[in-house]
Amino acid sequence: MALLDTVLSTVGKTSGVTAAALLDGVTGLSYAEYGAPEPAQDAQEIAHLAVMHLNRAGFTGELESIVVTTAAHHHVTTRVDRQGDPLLLFALVDRDRTNITWALRDLAEHTDRLLS
């Protein structure tokens, strides 16, 4: 099993996470997946559009995370820092099993150690 698949299954053990994917922030290429993260590439496009619009509005910092909330889920997209084109960690979070603050905190812990 590839190293990236192993790390994604660890992300999958986070409470409330039902699916996850590690994506390229520019190309949307999925490097590794856990479960069935179908909305992942849409989430990357949303993140890309958000950054383009924020830049146009004069915002020059880096995007940290985007949360899209539907009736049952939070679609959480967080940036994974690295030199070069950014990576995104996408997670589908069950609203009934955790709250967004905990989920964001848990995912942030993963993103810090993801590339080592």
Partner: peptide, 15 residues
């Protein structure tokens, strides 16, 4: 270089 980072770069180059 991180082992996972190498895998990311390897996959990116391949695709």
């Amino acid at each position: 270089l991180g082992a996972r980072e190498l895998e990311v770069i390897g996959q990116a180059a391949l695709f």
